[in-house]
Structure formats: structure tokens, C-alpha cells
Amino acid sequence: MNRLKDKVAVVTGGARGIGKCICELFVDEGARVVAIDIMALNYEKENVEGYAADLCSPGEVDKFVDYVLKKYGKIDILINNAGITRDALIEKMSDEMWDAVINVNLKAVFNLTRRVYPSMRENKSGSIVNISSVVGEYGNIGQSNYAASKAGIIGLTKSWAKEFSRKGDAIRVNAVAPGYANTEMMATVPETVLESIREKTMLKRLAEPSEIAYAVLFLASGESSYVTGHVLSVNGGLRL
């Protein structure tokens, strides 16, 4: 199918894992994709372009958005996917650990969305999908910084869904809250911990990145044209 035919999509954190899977799926669905990450990106598929920038820097965000609009003329879809973890119990969590996670996971989303929104407003349409987490919904031991950032994403999503549509514009804002998936971020997690997660999950397994990507595709496409301000939990029935 070509559910995103002729659409221009920006995907953050597109170098690996769920972000890369989203990029490849969107291209298969007919979109032209610009994947942005802190590192240089290379893709084998056509119609996906890599761009290296620091989304925590408003100046670099301005340059990036100007580049995309000049080259492609519009931004139809924005996927705020980039995220990091710096886990520790509160008494061992440094200021640097807290600031790094809040800056990448939350402030960068604000920086980019603030800059992309005016072009969507001009076109009176757009779809923004923010990637939250099951941890943002339920919390988790040793992840107070990550949980706060992902809970913040839910707050931004609901606020922007109201704000961006208040003049009748068809700009939708939704979030996907994934559970634990088979990505590089999970590669260092001990098997005993992974087994505990599986046991707490109704489907008794981790997600594949493609399963998260398909949920994002639904919210990005016209198939969800009457959905906004929603948080879609894709966690296999996990309860922390």
C-alpha cells in the first residue's frame, strides 16, 4: 500500500532501532523521509535521507528545518522518536544524568516541534507522533529521569493536540507508548531482567521494532484521521 504517498516525513533518532524501522516502513509506504540523528546516517533505500544535527541546539534545529522546507517544500509528518537513558537510583543520579535525559527526550521534542508547527499551520494539516514509553505511563525503579521525560511527552501531546487544532486546522498530535522492544538499547540488559519483563507481559515476549513502527504508521497516516490527543500503548500487556 501507499498510505503515505507524496508525504514528507521527518523522523528523529533514525539511526537505529525503532527509528530506523519507522524510516524504512514510511519509505515503503510512499513517503520521502528525512531521518535526523546526532550521528551521520546512511540508508540503502531510496527516498530516505540522513541528516546529522543536535536537536538540543535551537540553532541547529532552525538550520535543519530550513533545509527540509527548502528542499522538499513542506513537512507533513513529524515523528519525535529520539531518546536516551541514563539509569540510576535517585541517590546516585547526578545532575548530568538528569539533564542529559531531559534535554534529549523532552527539550529536543519541544525545540523541533516549535519550529515545524508553523509550516503545518500554513498548510492547515499535519500529523505529529511523539514516542513516549510504558515507563512514562507507569514509572520504573531507577529511571526517574526517563520516566519524567516520557510522562512529559504525554503532557506535550495532549496540550499540542488542543493547541494546534483550535482554529480548525487538521493538525493531529498523538503519542505511542512502547513497552520493551528488541533494540540496541536492550542489548546490555541482563537476561534475568529480560525474563522478568517477559513474565510481566501478557504476550510473554518483547516487541519487535516493526510492531512499534506499524503503530506509528497508523497514527501518521490518514487511517487515523479522526484520532488526536491519544496515547497508544503498544506494550504486549506489560504492567510494571
Rank of each mutant, 00 (worst) to 15 (best):
V101L: 12
A100D: 04
N81S: 12
V65T: 10
M97E: 04
G83D: 02
A100H: 02
R114M: 15
N81W: 00
Y117D: 04
A53T: 13
A100R: 01
E96G: 11
K70M: 06
D62G: 05
G73P: 07
D76T: 12
F64K: 02
V104D: 01
M97N: 06
I90G: 01
Y67K: 15
V65P: 09
M120G: 04
L78F: 03
V61I: 08
A53K: 09
I79R: 03
N103F: 03
K63Q: 13
K92H: 12
A53F: 11
Y72M: 10
R115H: 06
R86G: 10
I79C: 05
E91G: 07
A53G: 09
S119T: 13
V116H: 05
L55G: 08
I90E: 00
L89P: 03
V101S: 07
A88R: 01
A52V: 14
E91F: 09
G83E: 00
C56D: 05
A53W: 11
I102N: 04
M97I: 03
M97V: 04
D99F: 14
A108S: 11
T85V: 14
A52K: 14
V116G: 04
S119G: 07
Y72T: 08
D62P: 08
K63I: 04
G83M: 14
A108L: 07
Y72K: 14
E96C: 15
M93L: 15
A88I: 06
T113W: 10
W98N: 04
F110S: 10
M93S: 09
L78C: 08
V109D: 01
D54K: 05
A108Y: 05
I79Y: 00
N105I: 12
W98S: 13
A82I: 06
L89C: 02
N80K: 01
V68A: 00
K70S: 14
V109C: 06
N80L: 10
K107E: 13
D54M: 14
A52Q: 15
N111A: 11
A88C: 10
N81L: 08
V68D: 02
I75N: 09
L112F: 00
Y117F: 10
I102Y: 05
C56Y: 00
C56H: 04
A53Q: 15
I84D: 06
E91P: 07
G73Q: 13
R86V: 07
L78M: 08
D54R: 14
R86S: 11
